[in-house]
Nucleic acid binder design. Structure first.
Length: 962
DNA sequence: GAGTTTGAAACT
DNA sequence: CAGTTTCAAACTC
């Protein structure tokens, strides 16, 4: 099922890929990096991919090219990718992280069109990405089966970009190796290789399509999903030596590859497949949504199955998967839900990324998880290779939430984004997060952005391609951040190529499982152009679809534009200029808007560090937004009483804050009157109410050694927040990791993250707990964001801090932070640290400024760093924007744009200030600092948790000792 | 699906 | 900065 489609897509893609030449040249990549435009161009391609574009989250502030450029200059690779806005190519993105992002983006762009075409055709054409992957896979396969490698095999969509391609010894591998070697540079290599592969794939596809179809036929339900899955699955596997890959790369991709390579192996594979099918069916049966959700995993599985026709390896893989599942279960039972992870993101988790990795049995786990169908955005990584690892990768927290992203989160709750990332570790990890979002969002949150995601997810960018791939982020900060994170995290060997599973490709197919196709995709593939329903407003991805008629999608009226996303095919807009073709125009307009309001493209939703997560997850998990999250500007509702989506606060599932000008506020997520109090109370209340949770937390903390986490502290804004966070973190450690990893994806990501987290850990319905955890996570995020807001400098500082690099300021801060952490119990830190690993970038990117955070948390630290900065300035997440706008960090940020509405921040500050405005900042930084110091730089995902806990313990102990 | 309501964005 | 207009989403029928 799946396999065929992807293959077809890949074939088409291959055909389209011509442009690879330019890509190949390093110069080209460099240039691309420099100019945001190119990436953008790539984006269109991406758009073509339904699944690919998702990054809304990432793009929280897609901003002016200038900024992007600046960023690029700093982070050329990332920036390029980001700008390209093409998340889609998860693979590419991942590879980019490893190598040159630009080239990858280019490839993506090139591929994307082809992919789109394919998707259009519905033909089981392997996606381009898939083709690439396939190529790799094929090579791998070839290696394993030097002979067996058939063109058909090559055609199989499991191209994987093995980061480690070079590892593959085979001649076939050579080609792959070329990519791999290039992966480092990625740009060039992938393209060429891709071409070749694609060509082969195309040929193969022709031949193989039938075979693939057969497979597909087997998995009717999954067929759609299958297509994408291969991409997803295959995307990552860099390391695989062909042979090894077979065994180790149990990932779907590998499986597919192998299968492709060896049809003879089909028999065995068939067995496995049958199992997979069964599993897949189970999952599918669970829910349509779940289906979509599970579809991704299923797809992967299916693909594996189909692909694994070769089977032998697969069988081995399957076994492994089972083992992993067991392991996962053991490790993180909670993660189970994750497996389902609607969006399976295979991420190569860079060891660096502290992301907590849960190993989940890809197949089974996915299924089970799917059943859970939680909104939780847990990122489950199904190990591409082995069973799936559910990797909870702390993504860079900092995520500004665009409403879009949020919406996506909320809307796309069910939607999953799958991103295949190659883990530097070797194993490919497929992380499935439901909402990647977000945050990252295609739009957001979109474009799970989510998928950022967050993309942001763990170090990998999740370039969250929309399912449809339609939406592209403009290369907003978020993305860059995400990418950066990846880079930072990734430096590792891992090519964190996220291949967004091609999911996107099949979007059309996906009838049943739209999302499936685009794992990451918030956007959905479903091109429902009309926002039939409010929910429909969002693509399956969660990305919003606009319906603009007069604004040409060049005004903030347009959700896509506002989210920094290009309009996708699913949009029903008229006279739309928000497309890659008009990139220049879009950039100009954006600049104009930003000149007016630097924060115009900043995420609207900012988290309060201190806020309890209470609101975050409705029981339903409807909203992933953290409880502390608030609308930056606040609403002005007069008639809706903040009980309808007319209210942006309500729409974002956040409570109203003092900044709101609403009348008769009845916002269920939080009354503005309660806002100030709530922050403080929530913590206490949540603690009390959720004693069980707390207990759990305590348990965790105890185990982790987080002593300070006392809820009491939590209650206390200043100290509490830190403590609270810590506690949460401790509790959530797993979750937080998750969230962090996932979401990063961006602003959106935040939500997505949250969503994910809940699902995993506590099956218990204690939303509170989840919320808390999420809240904690959010806090972390917010901190990051805060930094961003605080100043680009700060962001830089912090980010570096995380990296440990950083500006002088950062450096200064770091020590402090470390000290603090040691003192206070940087327990939180560990987690944060993890995030941070991914973060630094994200911070910059994510503009989210948690007002509360400032207030509650660490105003002090901020003050230290940014005494000048206004709290609300912090809020502006747009440090980048500010940067872009050339706003002075302090004043500028907030100033122009926010000032109008930024009042909330001030208010928050004031309110918090009661506790301690400065304190909030302090706390924020403290946290940050702590986090930074405590942050064991790059703990392996899996280890990360342990490490985090340990670190926390240590810190806590220290603090407790205090 | 058309029309109305609503509130944000844009404009003056 | 305030008021008005424009716009598109949300909502209702």
């Amino acid at each position: 099922m799946d396999s065929p489609e992807p293959s077809s897509k890949t074939a088409t893609i291959n055909s389209t890929i011509n442009p690879t030449h330019a890509e190949d040249s390093p110069v080209f990549s460099y240039i691309s990096n420099l100019s945001p435009i190119q990436p953008v161009k790539a984006a269109p391609v991406v758009q073509g991919f339904p699944g690919l574009n998702s990054p809304p989250l990432l793009f929280t502030s897609p901003r002016v090219s200038a900024h992007s450029r600046l960023r690029r200059s700093q982070f050329p690779q990332l920036s390029s990718e980001v700008f390209s806005g093409k998340n889609e190519d998860n693979n590419n993105a991942i590879t980019d992280s490893d190598g040159n992002g630009a080239s990858v983006s280019q490839l993506r762009s090139e591929l994307s069109p082809s992919v789109q075409k394919v998707s259009d055709n519905n033909i089981s054409v392997p996606d381009e990405s898939g083709s690439l992957i396939r190529c790799v896979d094929e090579f791998l396969v070839d290696v394993s089966n030097s002979e067996s490698a058939n063109p058909s095999n090559s055609t199989n969509p499991s191209p994987k970009v093995a980061d480690n391609i070079p590892q593959s010894p085979n001649s076939a591998a050579e080609s792959v190796a070329d990519f791999a070697s290039k992966d480092a540079r990625k740009d060039e290599i992938p393209k060429d290789a891709a071409r070749v592969v694609v060509e082969q794939a195309e040929e193969e596809n022709k031949g193989k399509s039938s075979s693939d179809q057969k497979d597909n036929g087997i998995y009717n339900t999954s067929t759609d999903s299958d297509l994408p899955s291969p991409d997803l699955c295959t995307k990552i596997e860099p390391d695989l030596p062909a042979d090894n890959s077979l065994h180790y790369h149990c990932s779907d991709r590998q499986m597919a590859q192998l299968s492709r390579a060896d049809h003879a192996m089909l028999d065995e594979a068939s067995d496995i497949q049958t199992e997979l099918l069964e599993n897949a069916h189970d999952c599918r049966n669970d829910n349509d949504k779940i289906n979509s959700m599970s579809s991704a995993p299923d797809e992967c599985i299916m693909q594996h199955d189909s692909q694994t026709k070769a089977g032998q390896h697969q069988s081995g893989i399957r076994r492994r998967c089972l083992q992993f599942e067991d392991a996962q279960r053991k490790i993180s039972p909670t993660s189970v839900g994750l497996q389902n992870a609607s969006d399976v993101v295979s991420c190569s988790i860079p060891p660096v990324s502290p992301a907590v990795i849960e190993v989940i049995a890809s197949g089974s786990s996915n299924r089970s998880s799917t059943a859970s169908s939680r909104p939780s955005t847990q990122l489950t990584s199904s190990s591409d290779n082995f069973g799936s690892f559910a990797v909870k990768v702390p993504k860079p927290s900092g995520i500004g939430l665009h409403l879009n992203s949020i919406a996506m989160q909320a809307g796309s709750r069910g939607s999953r984004a799958t991103v295949s990332v190659k883990s530097a570790e070797r194993g490919n990890l497929s992380i499935s997060g439901k909402k990647l979002m977000s945050m990252m969002s295609c739009h957001p949150s979109e474009n799970l952005k989510s998928c950022s995601i967050s993309s942001n997810v763990v170090g990998s960018h999740l370039t969250i391609g929309d399912n449809d791939g339609e939406h592209e982020s403009y290369g907003t900060n978020a993305e860059s951040a995400a990418s950066l994170h990846l880079n930072a995290a990734k430096p590792l060997n891992n090519t964190v190529l996220l291949k967004p599973t091609e999911h996107t490709i099949s979007h059309k197919r996906k009838s049943s499982s739209e999302y499936i196709d685009s794992p990451m995709n918030y956007n959905q593939s479903s091109p429902k152009k009309k926002r039939k329903k409010p929910s429909d407003a969002y693509d399956g991805d969660g990305c919003k679809r606009c319906n603009c008629k007069k604004s040409k999608c060049l005004k903030l009226y347009c959700d896509c534009f506002a989210a920094g996303i290009y309009c996708a095919g699913s949009c029903a807009c008229q006279g739309c200029f928000n497309r890659l073709e008009y990139e220049d125009t879009v950039n100009d307009v954006r600049q104009q808007i930003q000149s007016r309001n630097p924060l115009a493209f900043c995420p609207k939703i900012v988290q309060h560090p201190t806020d309890s997560p209470a609101s975050i997850l409705g029981a339903e998990g409807a909203s992933f937004t953290p409880p502390s999250a608030r609308h930056k500007r606040g609403c002005s509702c007069k008639k809706s009483m903040c009980l309808k989506k007319y209210c942006e606060c309500y729409q974002a599932n956040v409570g109203c804050s003092s900044g709101c000008r609403c009348e008769g506020c009845k916002n269920v997520y939080g009354l503005k009157e309660e806002y100030g109090k709530d922050l403080v109370k929530k913590h206490c209340i949540t603690e009390r109410l959720e004693k069980p949770v707390e207990e759990k937390v305590e348990m965790v903390t105890a185990t982790s050694g987080l002593l300070q986490i006392d809820p009491r502290n939590q209650c206390n804004l200043t100290p509490p927040t830190p403590s609270f966070q810590c506690s949460n973190r401790g509790k959530n450690a797993s979750k937080s990791w998750f969230t962090s990893g996932r979401y990063l994806s961006s602003p959106e990501s935040g939500q997505a993250i949250y969503g994910l987290s809940p699902a995993s850990p506590t099956s218990s319905k204690n939303h509170d707990i989840d919320q808390e955890t999420t809240g904690d996570i959010m806090d972390l995020v917010t901190f990051d964001q805060e930094f961003n807001y605080g100043n680009a400098k700060l962001a830089n500082e912090f980010s570096p801090g995380f990296h440990v690099t950083g500006n002088t300021d950062d450096l200064l801060a770091l020590p402090k932070s470390q000290d603090l952490a040691s003192n206070t119990g940087g327990q939180l830190i560990p987690q944060t640290v993890h995030f941070q690993s991914t973060w630094p970038l994200s911070w910059r990117d994510s503009p989210i400024t948690p007002m509360n955070q400032f207030d509650g948390s660490g105003m002090n630290a901020l003050e230290l760093l940014n005494s000048d900065k206004k709290p609300y300035a912090m809020e502006d997440d747009t440090p980048e924007i500010l940067k872009d706008s050339s706003m002075p960090q302090t004043g500028v940020k907030v100033s122009s744009p926010n000032k109008k509405r930024i009042s909330p921040p001030n208010r928050h500050l004031n309110e918090l200030g009661s506790s301690s405005s400065g304190g909030g900042l302090k706390t924020g930084r403290k946290f940050i600092l702590r986090a930074v110091p405590s942050f064991p730089p790059l703990t392996p995902c899996i280890d990360s948790k342990d490490v985090a806990t340990h670190s926390v313990d240590n810190s806590q102990k220290g603090s407790s000792g205090k």
